[in-house]
């Protein structure tokens, strides 16, 4: 409104009342740093207290010890827990088993997710694409426990797997590590498909056409054009499935038979053994593995493209 510039009309606008709220607002508009500080306090408080301090508490607890009979935590510094975890053959075996399961789950999920995501992003029409995205997301609407128990009955003796493989002379793998890998692969599949699908969406169709015009066959186009652009998404997807598998203990309890993973050791040490310090020390193993994994991912340059 051009009239706002004339003194005549300005005089008609009443002077704002000098309320405390207005004074604070004036102060904040003049002091940008204070404003920024106040805006950031809540999220930083969250990040600091809930996230960093929780991790720090975990780290510190690992150096304490527990009175074996009364169960009280004694706050004396000791390296015993760390030494036990690093040197104990039990923890080495279970760590290897856990990493093996997590790697296998990641590989299986990526192998399934790549063609599915490619079909969703590049082949399916817009309508089918939407339906497929919903179909991929659908399992996330159901509870984790329901899905794990569903696999328990699917894999049970006389269950669906038994019934389907019986004509070919097969049988259900029963409860054990194969069942854990199958169930975890199923549970984390949406988390792997979605980042890869998003990554493929960003690959322009024109590049595929250009590659084809220049005489590249399907596999050459995949290897030289699609994969380099898709690599960061695959790494991101693998971080999901790998880290989620590393910490899981419920699926193992339900379909894992007599096996235990790192999560179970943490769980029994907190619950059954009431040994929080040792549990903290064990919980540091997945943290360490993830740090190594993320560093390796960063070295490969994948994280910078995220």
């Amino acid at each position: 409104m051009s009239s706002a510039a004339t003194p005549h009309v300005t005089a008609g606008v009443p002077q704002p009342r000098d309320t405390p709220a207005r004074r604070i607002s004036v102060f904040l508009s003049q002091h940008a740093r204070v404003r920024l500080g106040l805006l950031l306090t809540a999220p930083l408080f969250w990040l600091g207290l809930v996230y960093v301090v929780a991790l720090a508490a975990l780290l510190i607890t690992a150096f304490w010890t527990v009175d074996s009979f009364t169960g009280q935590v004694r706050t004396e510094f000791t390296l015993d827990n760390i030494i036990t975890v690093v040197t104990g053959s039990l923890y080495q075996t279970v760590t290897l088993r856990t990493v093996g399961v997590a790697l296998l789950v990641t590989v299986i999920d990526i192998a399934i997710a790549l063609p599915v995501a490619f079909f969703m992003a590049k082949v399916a029409g817009p309508r089918l694409q939407r339906i497929l995205v919903i179909a991929v997301l659908m399992p996330l609407w159901a509870s984790y426990l329901v899905k794990a128990y569903a696999w328990r009955s699917v894999l049970a003796e006389g269950g669906v797997v038994d019934w389907m493989t019986a004509p070919f002379g097969g049988s259900s793998p029963g409860y054990g590590l194969p069942a854990v890998v199958i169930t975890l692969s199923y549970l984390w599949l949406p988390y792997v498909i979605l980042p890869i699908y998003a990554g493929l969406e960003r690959v322009p169709d024109s590049l595929l056409e250009a590659s084809s015009d220049l005489g590249a066959k399907t596999w050459r186009t995949m290897g030289s054009v699609v994969m380099p652009m898709l690599w960061p998404s695959i790494i991101a997807a693998s971080i999901f499935s790998f880290s989620l598998s590393l910490g899981d203990y419920i699926t193992v309890n339900i379909v894992g038979g007599a096996n235990q993973l790192l999560g179970n050791l943490v769980y029994t040490n907190v619950g059954a053994a009431n040994n929080l310090p040792l549990a903290s020390a064990i919980a540091l193993i997945p943290v360490a593995i993830m740090i190594v994994y993320l560093t390796a991912a960063r070295r490969s340059g994948a994280l910078e493209n995220l």
């Binding site: 074996s68 009979f69 039990l90 075996t93 235990q260 059954a272 053994a273």
Partner: peptide, 15 residues
């Protein structure tokens, strides 16, 4: 052997 020793033993048994 106390309960803590039993807990450790139990985890080793499960392996």
């Amino acid at each position: 052997t106390d309960y803590a020793a039993w807990t450790t033993a139990w985890q080793e048994i499960k392996g």
